[in-house]
């Protein structure tokens, strides 16, 4: 599954970068994430709880920053396993920050997510809808945290 898009933020790239690197602040922007533990400067663990119909599960993941070019680009690798089906998920994510003007940054993301095991039977449509809402909510929370001037609208 491929997720890509652009998030305009009314802030300087350095402010967005700082938030992305602060594990707790970043995790706070991602809905459903809890138990975040910093392993080292570029690695953290966490869990996401979700229920799909009658099945509730917890997804434990480890995120590892594999490339960092402050404050412009970052690449991360995420591995996860879910508690119910023991399915595995791997994601390769890339983010770039472009300064469009004073207090104007465009965050571009590109993620490929690969799910192996029974979790895949839940269906791409459910997973894509969930991802879409997570990204929308992430955008809201990120903006709330870093924007100097409230975004119009």
């Amino acid at each position: 599954m491929l997720f890509e898009g652009k998030i305009p933020v009314h802030a300087e790239p350095s402010a967005v970068w700082k938030l992305l690197l602060d594990i707790n602040e970043f995790a706070d922007c991602v809905p459903g994430v809890s138990n975040v533990v910093k392993i080292d400067d570029s690695t953290f663990d966490g869990t996401i709880a979700a229920s799909v119909g009658p099945i509730s599960g917890e997804f434990a993941f480890r995120a590892h920053i594999i490339e960092s070019d402050p404050p412009r680009a970052m690449a991360a690798h995420v591995d996860g396993t879910d508690s119910v089906t023991k399915s595995s998920m791997t994601a390769e994510m890339a983010m770039t920050l472009a300064r469009l003007g004073a207090n104007e940054t465009e965050l571009t993301y590109h993620a490929t997510v690969d799910i192996r095991g029974r979790l895949a039977l839940i269906g791409d449509m459910v997973l894509m809808a969930t991802a879409k809402l997570i990204i929308q909510e992430f955008t809201k929370r990120l903006r709330r945290k870093v924007e100097v001037v409230p975004a119009p609208g």
């Binding site: 459903g32 809890s34 996401i48 459910v126 809808a129």
Partner: peptide, 15 residues
């Protein structure tokens, strides 16, 4: 109608 998907902090998703 399908049962909802729920993630803490998000609106329920009803397929």
């Amino acid at each position: 109608q399908r049962p909802p998907t729920r993630v803490e902090g998000l609106a329920a998703m009803m397929p």
